[in-house]
Design a protein around this nucleic acid. Sequence first.
DNA 1: CGGCTCCCCTGTAAGC
DNA 2: TGCTTACAGGGGAGCC
Length: 298
Amino acid sequence: MPELPEVESVRRGLAEWLPGARVDAVRLYDPRILGTASQRIIAPAAAEAFATGITGAAFDVPARRGKFLWVPLADHRRALSVHLGMSGQFRIHEPGDPLHRHTRADFACFAPSGREFSLRFVDQRIFGHLGIDELTVPAQWNSHLPVPAQMAHIAPDPLEASTDLEAIARVVKTKRSAIKSVLLDQSVLSGIGNIYADEALYRARVHPLAQAARLRISRVRAVLESAREVMLEALAQGGTSFDALYVNVNGESGYFDRSLGVYGRTGQPCLRCGTLITRLVVGGRGTHICLQCQKPQR
DNA sequence: CGGCTCCCCTGTAAGC
DNA sequence: TGCTTACAGGGGAGCC
Protein backbone atom coordinates (compact mmCIF):
# COMPACT_ATOMS: atom_id res chain seq x y z
CA MET A 1 0.00 0.00 0.00
CA PRO A 2 1.45 3.33 -0.95
CA GLU A 3 2.81 5.50 1.81
CA LEU A 4 4.97 8.57 1.46
CA PRO A 5 7.96 6.96 -0.34
CA GLU A 6 5.74 5.17 -2.84
CA VAL A 7 3.64 8.25 -3.50
CA GLU A 8 6.80 10.30 -3.98
CA SER A 9 8.06 7.70 -6.47
CA VAL A 10 4.82 8.07 -8.37
CA ARG A 11 5.09 11.85 -8.23
CA ARG A 12 8.59 11.73 -9.69
CA GLY A 13 7.42 9.44 -12.43
CA LEU A 14 4.54 11.73 -13.29
CA ALA A 15 6.92 14.70 -13.26
CA GLU A 16 8.67 13.16 -16.27
CA TRP A 17 5.49 13.26 -18.31
CA LEU A 18 2.91 15.75 -17.15
CA PRO A 19 4.37 19.26 -17.02
CA GLY A 20 3.11 21.15 -20.03
CA ALA A 21 0.94 18.30 -21.26
CA ARG A 22 -2.57 19.26 -22.32
CA VAL A 23 -5.57 17.07 -21.55
CA ASP A 24 -7.61 16.48 -24.68
CA ALA A 25 -10.19 14.12 -23.23
CA VAL A 26 -11.16 12.51 -19.95
CA ARG A 27 -12.82 9.16 -19.78
CA LEU A 28 -14.29 7.99 -16.48
CA TYR A 29 -14.71 4.24 -16.45
CA ASP A 30 -15.87 4.15 -12.85
CA PRO A 31 -17.22 7.38 -11.37
CA ARG A 32 -16.93 5.94 -7.86
CA ILE A 33 -13.30 6.99 -8.03
CA LEU A 34 -14.54 10.57 -7.56
CA GLY A 35 -16.30 9.65 -4.34
CA THR A 36 -15.39 8.75 -0.79
CA ALA A 37 -16.41 6.01 1.61
CA SER A 38 -19.39 8.10 2.73
CA GLN A 39 -20.17 9.61 -0.65
CA ARG A 40 -20.15 6.69 -3.00
CA ILE A 41 -22.91 7.72 -5.32
CA ILE A 42 -21.71 10.20 -7.88
CA ALA A 43 -24.25 12.41 -9.61
CA PRO A 44 -23.79 12.39 -13.37
CA ALA A 45 -23.41 16.16 -13.17
CA ALA A 46 -20.47 15.78 -10.80
CA ALA A 47 -18.73 13.36 -13.12
CA GLU A 48 -19.41 15.74 -15.98
CA ALA A 49 -18.01 18.67 -14.01
CA PHE A 50 -14.84 16.73 -13.31
CA ALA A 51 -14.32 15.86 -16.95
CA THR A 52 -15.04 19.34 -18.26
CA GLY A 53 -12.91 20.89 -15.53
CA ILE A 54 -9.85 18.95 -16.65
CA THR A 55 -10.42 18.83 -20.37
CA GLY A 56 -8.47 21.45 -22.24
CA ALA A 57 -6.30 22.29 -19.25
CA ALA A 58 -2.55 21.81 -19.12
CA PHE A 59 -0.77 20.08 -16.27
CA ASP A 60 1.99 21.66 -14.23
CA VAL A 61 4.58 19.94 -12.02
CA PRO A 62 3.01 17.33 -9.73
CA ALA A 63 3.23 18.01 -6.01
CA ARG A 64 2.82 15.96 -2.88
CA ARG A 65 2.20 16.27 0.84
CA GLY A 66 2.32 13.08 2.84
CA LYS A 67 0.36 10.47 0.92
CA PHE A 68 -1.64 13.09 -0.96
CA LEU A 69 -0.75 13.95 -4.51
CA TRP A 70 -1.95 16.64 -6.85
CA VAL A 71 -1.23 18.01 -10.27
CA PRO A 72 -1.71 21.76 -10.52
CA LEU A 73 -3.36 22.97 -13.67
CA ALA A 74 -1.56 25.65 -15.60
CA ASP A 75 -3.80 28.40 -14.20
CA HIS A 76 -2.29 27.61 -10.77
CA ARG A 77 -5.68 28.00 -9.18
CA ARG A 78 -6.92 24.45 -9.42
CA ALA A 79 -5.43 20.99 -9.36
CA LEU A 80 -6.22 17.39 -10.11
CA SER A 81 -6.17 15.97 -6.59
CA VAL A 82 -5.27 12.36 -6.00
CA HIS A 83 -5.11 9.83 -3.19
CA LEU A 84 -3.87 6.40 -4.12
CA GLY A 85 -5.68 4.70 -1.25
CA MET A 86 -4.73 1.08 -0.92
CA SER A 87 -4.15 0.07 -4.49
CA GLY A 88 -4.16 3.15 -6.69
CA GLN A 89 -1.65 3.36 -9.51
CA PHE A 90 -0.88 5.76 -12.31
CA ARG A 91 0.30 4.35 -15.61
CA ILE A 92 1.47 6.00 -18.77
CA HIS A 93 0.36 4.22 -21.95
CA GLU A 94 0.32 4.59 -25.67
CA PRO A 95 -3.17 5.87 -26.54
CA GLY A 96 -4.34 2.61 -28.09
CA ASP A 97 -3.00 0.22 -25.48
CA PRO A 98 -5.51 -2.26 -24.05
CA LEU A 99 -7.00 -1.17 -20.75
CA HIS A 100 -5.86 -2.77 -17.55
CA ARG A 101 -8.73 -4.53 -15.82
CA HIS A 102 -9.07 -1.99 -13.03
CA THR A 103 -8.67 1.20 -15.01
CA ARG A 104 -11.00 3.79 -13.49
CA ALA A 105 -10.06 6.90 -15.46
CA ASP A 106 -8.10 7.73 -18.59
CA PHE A 107 -6.70 11.13 -19.48
CA ALA A 108 -5.78 11.51 -23.13
CA CYS A 109 -2.77 13.82 -23.09
CA PHE A 110 -0.85 15.80 -25.65
CA ALA A 111 2.76 16.56 -24.63
CA PRO A 112 4.64 19.73 -25.61
CA SER A 113 6.86 17.51 -27.72
CA GLY A 114 3.84 16.66 -29.84
CA ARG A 115 3.66 13.15 -28.50
CA GLU A 116 0.32 11.76 -27.40
CA PHE A 117 0.04 9.54 -24.38
CA SER A 118 -2.59 8.16 -22.10
CA LEU A 119 -2.49 8.77 -18.35
CA ARG A 120 -4.48 6.07 -16.62
CA PHE A 121 -5.60 5.71 -13.04
CA VAL A 122 -5.84 2.08 -12.08
CA ASP A 123 -7.26 1.06 -8.73
CA GLN A 124 -8.35 -2.43 -7.85
CA ARG A 125 -10.12 -1.63 -4.57
CA ILE A 126 -11.37 1.88 -5.23
CA PHE A 127 -10.06 3.22 -1.95
CA GLY A 128 -8.28 5.80 -4.05
CA HIS A 129 -9.75 9.13 -4.99
CA LEU A 130 -9.56 11.62 -7.83
CA GLY A 131 -10.96 15.12 -7.76
CA ILE A 132 -10.59 18.63 -9.02
CA ASP A 133 -10.02 21.21 -6.35
CA GLU A 134 -9.07 24.80 -5.65
CA LEU A 135 -5.50 25.41 -4.45
CA THR A 136 -5.23 27.21 -1.14
CA VAL A 137 -2.50 27.91 1.40
CA PRO A 138 -3.65 26.46 4.74
CA ALA A 139 -3.37 28.92 7.60
CA GLN A 140 -2.47 26.49 10.34
CA TRP A 141 0.85 25.21 9.05
CA ASN A 142 4.09 27.12 8.97
CA SER A 143 4.38 26.49 5.27
CA HIS A 144 3.55 28.38 2.11
CA LEU A 145 2.72 25.33 0.03
CA PRO A 146 -0.56 25.76 -1.83
CA VAL A 147 -2.57 22.54 -1.53
CA PRO A 148 -5.98 21.41 -2.75
CA ALA A 149 -8.65 22.65 -0.35
CA GLN A 150 -9.70 19.09 0.48
CA MET A 151 -6.20 18.51 1.85
CA ALA A 152 -5.98 21.64 3.98
CA HIS A 153 -6.20 19.64 7.19
CA ILE A 154 -3.25 17.44 6.26
CA ALA A 155 -0.09 18.30 8.16
CA PRO A 156 3.26 18.75 6.42
CA ASP A 157 5.36 15.63 6.08
CA PRO A 158 8.88 14.78 7.31
CA LEU A 159 10.48 15.38 3.93
CA GLU A 160 9.30 18.97 3.53
CA ALA A 161 12.17 21.38 4.13
CA SER A 162 10.08 23.56 6.42
CA THR A 163 9.01 20.69 8.68
CA ASP A 164 10.47 21.05 12.16
CA LEU A 165 10.49 17.62 13.79
CA GLU A 166 11.31 19.21 17.14
CA ALA A 167 8.08 21.19 16.97
CA ILE A 168 6.18 18.09 15.86
CA ALA A 169 7.63 16.20 18.81
CA ARG A 170 6.19 18.79 21.16
CA VAL A 171 2.77 18.38 19.55
CA VAL A 172 3.03 14.60 19.84
CA LYS A 173 3.81 15.06 23.54
CA THR A 174 0.39 16.66 24.06
CA LYS A 175 -1.46 13.56 22.83
CA ARG A 176 -2.88 11.02 25.22
CA SER A 177 -3.26 8.27 22.68
CA ALA A 178 -0.91 5.44 21.85
CA ILE A 179 2.19 6.68 20.08
CA LYS A 180 1.42 4.55 17.06
CA SER A 181 -2.02 6.12 16.68
CA VAL A 182 -0.40 9.55 16.82
CA LEU A 183 2.06 8.56 14.10
CA LEU A 184 -0.86 7.57 11.90
CA ASP A 185 -2.69 10.84 12.55
CA GLN A 186 -2.19 12.76 9.31
CA SER A 187 -3.14 16.03 10.97
CA VAL A 188 -0.06 15.84 13.22
CA LEU A 189 2.54 14.73 10.70
CA SER A 190 1.62 13.25 7.36
CA GLY A 191 2.93 10.46 5.18
CA ILE A 192 3.34 7.71 7.78
CA GLY A 193 1.16 4.66 7.22
CA ASN A 194 0.92 1.35 8.96
CA ILE A 195 4.15 -0.06 7.60
CA TYR A 196 6.44 2.85 8.36
CA ALA A 197 4.81 3.46 11.74
CA ASP A 198 5.80 -0.05 12.80
CA GLU A 199 9.26 0.34 11.31
CA ALA A 200 9.88 3.69 12.98
CA LEU A 201 8.82 2.39 16.41
CA TYR A 202 10.96 -0.69 16.00
CA ARG A 203 14.01 1.34 15.03
CA ALA A 204 13.51 3.70 17.95
CA ARG A 205 12.75 0.77 20.29
CA VAL A 206 9.44 2.25 21.44
CA HIS A 207 6.35 0.20 22.22
CA PRO A 208 3.43 1.17 19.93
CA LEU A 209 0.96 1.31 22.84
CA ALA A 210 3.08 3.71 24.89
CA GLN A 211 1.07 6.83 25.65
CA ALA A 212 2.61 9.64 23.63
CA ALA A 213 2.34 12.21 26.41
CA ARG A 214 4.22 9.95 28.83
CA LEU A 215 7.18 9.30 26.59
CA ARG A 216 10.34 11.29 27.13
CA ILE A 217 10.73 13.96 24.47
CA SER A 218 13.99 12.29 23.44
CA ARG A 219 12.11 9.09 22.68
CA VAL A 220 9.49 10.94 20.67
CA ARG A 221 12.25 12.70 18.78
CA ALA A 222 13.90 9.36 18.08
CA VAL A 223 10.67 7.91 16.72
CA LEU A 224 10.09 10.86 14.39
CA GLU A 225 13.66 10.84 13.16
CA SER A 226 13.45 7.09 12.60
CA ALA A 227 10.30 7.58 10.57
CA ARG A 228 12.04 10.16 8.42
CA GLU A 229 15.09 7.92 8.01
CA VAL A 230 13.21 4.79 7.06
CA MET A 231 11.08 6.62 4.55
CA LEU A 232 14.15 8.23 2.98
CA GLU A 233 15.79 4.82 2.67
CA ALA A 234 12.69 3.32 1.12
CA LEU A 235 12.48 6.19 -1.30
CA ALA A 236 16.10 5.68 -2.32
CA GLN A 237 15.36 2.04 -3.08
CA GLY A 238 12.00 2.49 -4.69
CA GLY A 239 12.56 5.61 -6.68
CA THR A 240 13.43 3.96 -9.96
CA SER A 241 10.35 1.92 -10.71
CA PHE A 242 9.13 4.09 -13.57
CA ASP A 243 9.80 3.58 -17.23
CA ALA A 244 8.32 4.68 -20.50
CA LEU A 245 5.12 2.72 -20.33
CA TYR A 246 4.70 1.53 -16.84
CA VAL A 247 4.36 2.85 -13.33
CA ASN A 248 5.06 0.40 -10.59
CA VAL A 249 3.50 1.78 -7.48
CA ASN A 250 1.88 -1.12 -5.72
CA GLY A 251 4.95 -2.15 -3.73
CA GLU A 252 4.37 -5.81 -4.38
CA SER A 253 7.59 -6.16 -6.30
CA GLY A 254 9.67 -3.42 -4.71
CA TYR A 255 12.07 -3.06 -1.83
CA PHE A 256 9.27 -3.62 0.67
CA ASP A 257 9.91 -7.12 1.81
CA ARG A 258 13.68 -6.82 1.62
CA SER A 259 14.36 -3.98 4.00
CA LEU A 260 11.60 -4.21 6.57
CA GLY A 261 12.54 -5.03 10.13
CA VAL A 262 9.20 -5.98 11.66
CA TYR A 263 6.28 -5.32 9.34
CA GLY A 264 4.81 -8.59 8.10
CA ARG A 265 7.47 -10.58 9.93
CA THR A 266 5.22 -12.14 12.58
CA GLY A 267 6.83 -15.29 13.95
CA GLN A 268 10.20 -14.56 12.38
CA PRO A 269 13.26 -13.70 14.47
CA CYS A 270 14.05 -10.10 15.33
CA LEU A 271 17.04 -9.00 13.27
CA ARG A 272 18.64 -7.49 16.38
CA CYS A 273 18.00 -10.01 19.13
CA GLY A 274 16.37 -13.10 17.61
CA THR A 275 13.16 -12.85 19.62
CA LEU A 276 10.18 -13.85 17.53
CA ILE A 277 8.20 -10.91 16.16
CA THR A 278 4.73 -10.56 17.69
CA ARG A 279 1.56 -9.21 16.17
CA LEU A 280 -0.98 -7.15 18.06
CA VAL A 281 -3.72 -4.69 17.18
CA VAL A 282 -3.36 -0.97 17.89
CA GLY A 283 -6.16 1.37 16.92
CA GLY A 284 -7.58 -1.38 14.77
CA ARG A 285 -4.38 -1.77 12.77
CA GLY A 286 -2.22 -4.83 12.59
CA THR A 287 0.96 -4.02 14.48
CA HIS A 288 4.30 -5.82 14.53
CA ILE A 289 6.82 -5.58 17.34
CA CYS A 290 9.76 -7.22 19.02
CA LEU A 291 8.71 -7.61 22.64
CA GLN A 292 12.34 -7.68 23.72
CA CYS A 293 13.48 -4.54 21.88
CA GLN A 294 10.26 -2.59 22.43
CA LYS A 295 9.56 -2.87 26.14
CA PRO A 296 6.39 -1.07 27.26
CA GLN A 297 8.20 1.13 29.79
CA ARG A 298 10.70 2.56 27.36
C1' DC B 1 -10.48 15.21 22.92
C1' DG B 2 -10.10 10.25 22.25
C1' DG B 3 -11.30 5.80 21.34
C1' DC B 4 -14.24 2.98 19.23
C1' DT B 5 -17.02 1.01 15.15
C1' DC B 6 -18.52 1.05 10.60
C1' DC B 7 -18.10 1.85 5.77
C1' DC B 8 -16.11 1.94 1.22
C1' DC B 9 -13.90 -2.52 -2.06
C1' DT B 10 -12.11 -6.88 -3.76
C1' DG B 11 -8.48 -10.52 -3.91
C1' DT B 12 -6.74 -13.95 -1.06
C1' DA B 13 -6.92 -17.40 2.28
C1' DA B 14 -8.77 -19.97 5.83
C1' DG B 15 -12.72 -22.75 7.53
C1' DC B 16 -16.50 -25.94 7.04
C1' DT C 1 -13.85 -29.93 -4.10
C1' DG C 2 -16.85 -25.84 -3.46
C1' DC C 3 -18.96 -22.69 -0.96
C1' DT C 4 -18.97 -19.05 2.72
C1' DT C 5 -16.71 -16.06 5.72
C1' DA C 6 -12.96 -13.33 7.55
C1' DC C 7 -9.48 -10.24 6.75
C1' DA C 8 -6.43 -6.55 5.09
C1' DG C 9 -5.89 -1.51 4.78
C1' DG C 10 -6.39 4.65 4.56
C1' DG C 11 -9.33 7.85 5.75
C1' DG C 12 -13.56 9.90 7.07
C1' DA C 13 -18.04 9.95 9.60
C1' DG C 14 -20.62 9.21 13.51
C1' DC C 15 -21.23 7.94 18.29
C1' DC C 16 -20.36 7.63 23.24
